[in-house]
Each structure stands twice: as C-alpha cells, then as structure tokens.
Nucleic acid binder design. Structure first.
Lengths: 319, 319
DNA sequence: CTGAAAGCGCTTACAG
DNA sequence: CTGAAAGCGCTTACAG
C-alpha cells in the first residue's frame, strides 16, 4: 500500500515549502536554486512521490485528458483510429479516455456528456452518423469530428477524400477491362463514395447493407446470386468486403477470376483475406494527428480533407 | 461555452446552502425536506448543472474510474476484452481509462503507473506476458490480471481453461479420423495450450511464431510447405489461424479437404474466414465481469478459471 | 530565490 | 432538517 505520499511530505523532507516543490516539478513558473532543486528531486525519488493528477486537474482547470468517442471498437477501423489518437495524444503528454458508442445518435450524445463531466479538455468524435451535428454542444467542451465526409456547420471536422478515393478505385477496375463495376455500400443513398464511384464510371448494380461483415455478406449474396452479376465491384468498406468475399466463396465464385473486388479503408485485415484485397487506404495516422492538433487548439481550421491512397493487391486482378 | 455552472450557483438559485445541494445529488448522507429537494432539482435543471467529477474524485478519494491495460487494440480479441470490460464497468457506474501497451513488460509497467497517477480506483491488466508479476505493485493501486493461464502469486488473476479447450479441440480433430494433428503456437514452449494439445492426442509437428496474423502465416508456410505435413492442425489463436489460412491458400491446399483447422479465441473474425473457422471460444464477457467484480472488491478470490467452449464450423470438417 | 496563503469544486463531520 | 467551515492535493499570484 505505501500510504500515499503527498507534496507536503516532499516539502518537509527536503526542508522547503510546498511551492518550491511545485516549481521544480513544473519547471516554473519561478526559478529555483540548483542546490534546492537537487534536494527536492532527491526527496521525490526517495519518497517515491507522484503528483496527484486529479488535484492538478482541479486546480489547473485542465486535465490533460482527451475524450474520444468511437462507434464500435470491434471494427478494426475504429480500433485503428483509437490507437492512432492515443499514440498522437501521448506524444503531447495527453492521455485519452476512450468511449465506444453503439453508433446511435443518442448514445453518442451521452458519451460526449459523460466525457465532458469527466473534465476532459476536448473530445474527438469519430462518428458514423449522417448528421453528427446532433452531438451536444451544451456541454461546453471543444469538439472535433473525425471521419466525416462532409463539412458540418458549427464544428471543426476532418475526413478522407472519399470521393476521390472511390473514383480512383472504380477507374482502376475499369482499367482492367471489366465492363461493369457494381457498388456495395451503406443504406444512405448518394453519399460521397457513391458519387465517386459514379464519377469513376460505375454503372453496375448497387446493393445496400450495414457497414459490417454481415451487411456485406448479405449484400454480396444479393448482388452475385443472380446471373446478371457485374464483373467487378467496389465495396465501400473493408468490413463489408470481408462479407462479400465470404458470399462469393459460398457461391463458388473466384476472386478475381469471376469477380474483381476493391474495398475502402485499408485496415490490416485486408492483407490476410484470400485473396488479399486491393483497397483505398485511409490516412488514419495523419487524420488522428490533425484531429488531436485541432482538439488542442494548435490550429483553427474548420475543415480538412486528407487524401486516400489506392493500395494494389490481388483481388482486383493486379499482382 | 456557457460559463461553467457550479454547485454554488445552484445553491444560490435554490436559496439553500451548498451542503444541501450535495445531499440531494448524492441522496445523502443527510435527509432533505421534500420541498427543498424539489427546489434544488429545479435549479439543477434550469441551470444545467453537472457535478465536476474531478472535484468529487479529489474529495472522495475515489474516481469511479477503472484503468484497463490491453496489449494491442488492433487485435480483435483485445478489442473485445476492452469492449466487455467497458460495458460491465458502465453497468456499475464506472468509466474506464483504456491504455494500449505495446505488449512489452516495461510498457505494461509504465501504463499501470500512468493510470495509477490518474487516480483510477483499480487497474485491470489484460496481459500476454509470460510473467505478468513484473507488473509494478509499488503504485499502490489494486491490480487484477485478466487472461493469465497460470496463477500469479501475489495478484488476483483470471483466465480461461486453456488446457481443457486445447485438449477438446485436438480430440475433436482426431475424432474426425485425421491421423496427425500439428500445433501452431507462440514462441514459449510448454504452455497450457500446448499441454492440452498433447493431452488430447496431438503428436504432429509444432511450428512457433508470434501471436499475430503474420506469425501464423510464417508458421503455416513452414509447417505446410513440406510434404510430410499433418492432416490437421490446432492453432493456438485466431489471429494465427487467419495467417495459416492465408498460407494454405497460397500453397493451394484446401481447407478442410487437405488440412483441417481449429483455432483458439473465438473472435468474430472467425465467422467470416473462408471457410469459417471452428474455434475454442473464450468466455470474454464472463471474464470481464469477473475481473471488474474483483477489481471493485466485490469478491476476493485469488484465482478463477472459466470454461472454454468449442464452436463447430466448417474448417474442421463439420457442417 | 523562497514562503505563507488563497482557492479550484466538491463532501462531510460538526453545530444548531 | 439546514448552514458554516474544514479539507482533499495541488498551483500561483503576492510579498519578501
């Protein structure tokens, strides 16, 4: 147990006031004589003192804690975002309080409230909502939206260039000489990945389903169960692509022999599917970096769009 | 922004002392007259007051925060544990501060220190270390080890019945009539899953590698690249099994036609491999439940072992 | 360069 | 049933 040692203990041991202990720990705001500082550092080491961050937070009005709301940690993409945000924050001396919402607007709302009450300095909301502006702002905590495709009035936000990525993927597929490129995507019509697919020359059928392995599986069954199936397909997320591959497997269709596939996200899982998936990679690390910087007030951009990168592997017919 | 409203504002608005505000918020420790309480609740609603948890934590000496250290959020198994611990804690009114260690002992150590300094009431360490007793205890915070196979002297711990699970998996494979069952597992020799495999009748070759997709891939290439390959294999983790499936695919071997596979963990990913993986499922939810209960001091068991469950799918030759 | 003191927003004995 | 006050462990003007 080692009864909690406090700043007062250190001060007593070093024969100084507690203010001085603060000065050496925080390296300011007042200078401390070399010898005195050494004595204090000694006392800290001997007693094994660690500042109480709760007290610091209360006094400073800043917790050096960042909140991060993600839709679902079970999805590798969100796990990657969580990891990246944590790493980036750590490099700046911040810890992150992670909350996994079940994806609903209400739940997202509640998570922000909880984190805000916890005294986080800001919260990053990695949202899948069509209208993340439902997020509370009454809590008074600075918010930044990570992973939105569109600008969201009133909130700083960042996202990947979904339009460009989808367009490039579709053009690549067409470049292979496949006549039609279908689309597997979420339930909402007309979003950026769909627009990009169309701009890239996509004319094939569209199958909609949840952004999950299961959603992709069902969509894949529908799209490829009929005989007038497309020769290629752009799938708007890795998770769905994994489901599509499973559907294709069950239908006895070969990838890329019978159907070529390109997905979107670029999570590690795509390196280990059979065959490996060609995918549009989101710049997760760079996005996390920008989000943390924005959350900490290091810049004040309202909207940033980062470029995606097409990673070529076997599923499209390359390699 | 809405300048932060404090307990004093509520008291003033309701025309009571701040003590009374506390009494109604915490429903004690002193009784409050009906009418007064109503006035206070009204003031709270009108002003949109939310207690400052930092101040509460400082005063109470308890943060109602649990720390959770996981080896790597990128692995779906750890993500599942993280999710489960969070859900279970939330049901008890606790939030969890999640830290992803890179798996090394030093890093794990440091994470515990950080969380401890954050004033968490306890920390749950989901460790992959052979000797998690390296974990600091000087920090003075209660620790519970989740996912250890062995008892760890001096620390409460819980784990799955890895021996039993591996044994059952191997016996099942042998029951299919496959002559030899190989083993793909981590670098450390003689651990429980290996013992269980042997107890179940495993006599085939052993290939060792990291507990990752890539580690499984390499091990699979080695084991099945030679002509005297086993007819079946027990793989000690889902991630490795995904790698093994990829190796088998590259080698042109059919599953389960040429090689039958059973893995260990039971993460969702195994439902969407081709073919679907038969796997020994860890009772993640139950383990998280037990870990949180132990961390909160609701029981005082030193060691708990929970049963695994064999989930039959196509990769072993069933279905 | 150093110390005594106020105050961050709460909770909880202690009086009344 | 309610109020005035101390104190949780810090930081930071304010004096010296």
């Amino acid at each position: 147990m080692s009864a909690k040692v406090t700043r007062a203990d250190v001060a007593r041991y070093a024969g100084v006031s507690s203010a001085v202990v603060s000065y050496v720990i925080n390296d300011g705001p007042r200078p401390v004589a070399q010898a005195t500082a050494a004595r204090v550092r000694d006392a800290i080491a001997v007693l094994g003192y660690r500042p109480n961050t709760t007290a610091q937070a209360l006094r400073r009005g800043s917790s050096r804690l960042l909140g991060h709301v993600v839709p679902d940690l079970g999805n590798p993409l969100w796990a990657e975002f969580a990891l990246a945000v944590e790493a980036v924050a750590a490099a700046r001396g911040y810890d992150v309080l992670l909350a996994s919402s079940e994806g609903g607007a209400d739940d997202e709302h509640r998570r922000v409230e909880t984190l805000s009450a916890r005294g986080v300095d800001a919260v990053i909301v990695t949202s899948v909502l069509a209208r993340p502006d439902l997020v509370s702002r009454g809590s008074g905590v600075p918010l930044v939206l990570l992973n939105t495709f569109f600008e969201v009035p009133g909130f700083p936000s960042l996202g990947v260039d979904a339009f460009g990525g989808a367009q490039e993927a579709t053009e690549h597929l067409l470049g292979h000489g496949y006549g039609t490129v279908g689309l597997v995507i979420g339930g909402e019509t007309g979003e950026l990945r769909e627009q990009g697919w169309r701009a890239g020359g996509g004319t094939g059928p569209i199958a909609r389903g949840e952004f999950s392995r299961h959603g992709g599986y069902e969509a894949g069954k529908r799209m490829f169960g009929s005989s007038d199936r497309p020769r290629a397909v752009f799938v708007a997320s890795d998770m769905q692509a994994v489901g599509v591959l499973r559907a294709l497997y069950e239908l006895g269709l070969d990838v890329p022999g019978d159907v070529a596939v390109v997905s979107f996200d670029g999570t590690v899982e795509t390196e280990f599917t059979n065959p490996q998936l060609t995918t549009v990679r989101q710049p997760v690390r760079a996005m996390a970096d920008a989000a943390v910087a924005r959350a900490l007030g290091e810049d004040s951009s309202e909207r940033r769009v980062l470029p995606a990168e097409l990673v070529l592997r076997a599923s499209c017919g390359c390699g």
